[in-house]
Amino acid sequence: MDDFRDFVRQRSSALSRNAYLLTGDHQLAEDLLQSALANTYRHWRRIRDDNPEAYVRQAMYHQHIAWWRRRRVTEQLTGAPREHPTADPAEATDLRLTVTAALRRLTPKQRAVIVLRYYDDLTEAQAADVLGCRIGTVKRHGHDALRRLREIAPDLLDLSWQRSTS
């Protein structure tokens, strides 16, 4: 199983970033990745020659949704969002925190579609394959997620518009 160890060493950073984007929490992301890697290890002989990274990502998305279904935590707003972001020398950090907070407010399926489509740069068909659903379902979750992001984080639109005009 040296090839599994090599795979984990080579791809764990990228997979860890994906797990964090899905969960919005470092500890949950570590747990999610470990769970997916444990599942991958059990099936390693069968998948190692195919596309093991896709298998791990799919396992993470499915595990995250399963956790979410069991947890059923209701969303609670703790305060009104800022009207205008304050000028901060660490603009990249501010953008990252804003994106992370906005992603946390999406449903797990919406978050998975956004991460797959815009972070992993997968097509709708590829995202549907990873999530085990139809392309129309990916389109619907993507549409709903983008609409929700426009509502909860309008400052992201301002930042993207400012960057495109700079």
Rank of each mutant, 00 (worst) to 15 (best):
M1D: 04
M1T: 04
D3C: 10
R5S: 14
D6K: 12
F7N: 04
V8M: 06
V8F: 10
R9G: 09
R9S: 13
Q10S: 13
R11A: 00
S12K: 08
S12D: 11
S13R: 07
A14P: 00
A14S: 08
L15E: 07
R17G: 05
R17A: 06
N18Q: 06
A19I: 02
Y20H: 09
Y20N: 01
L22G: 01
T23H: 10
T23M: 12
T23P: 09
D25G: 03
D25S: 09
H26R: 13
H26A: 15
L28I: 06
A29G: 11
A29F: 13
E30V: 02
L32I: 06
L33E: 03
Q34Y: 07
N39Q: 14
T40L: 13
T40S: 14
T40M: 14
Y41W: 15
Y41S: 02
Y41C: 03
R42E: 14
H43L: 13
W44Q: 05
W44V: 05
R46T: 10
R48W: 00
D49R: 04
D50F: 03
N51I: 08
N51W: 15
N51R: 08
P52W: 07
P52N: 08
P52T: 08
Y55H: 03
R57E: 05
Q58Y: 00
A59K: 01
M60A: 02
Y61P: 00
H62S: 09
H62Q: 13
H62F: 12
A66F: 04
W68E: 11
W68C: 06
R70Y: 14
R71C: 11
R72E: 15
R72M: 12
V73Q: 14
V73N: 11
L77R: 15
L77C: 04
L77A: 06
G79H: 13
P81E: 11
R82G: 07
E83L: 09
E83K: 01
D88A: 09
P89K: 10
P89F: 12
P89M: 04
P89Y: 13
A90L: 15
E91D: 13
E91Q: 15
A92I: 08
T93Q: 12
T93L: 15
D94T: 14
D94A: 15
L97W: 14
T98H: 02
T98E: 14
V99Y: 06
T100Q: 10
T100N: 08
A101T: 11
A101P: 00
A102R: 00
A102I: 05
R104M: 12
R105Y: 12
R105A: 12
T107K: 01
T107R: 03
T107S: 15
P108K: 03
P108G: 01
P108L: 13
A112E: 01
I114R: 00
R117Q: 07
D120W: 04
D120Y: 00
D120M: 04
T123E: 10
T123A: 10
T123S: 15
Q126G: 09
A128R: 02
A128H: 02
D129I: 00
D129V: 05
V130S: 01
V130F: 03
L131M: 13
G132D: 07
I135P: 04
I135C: 05
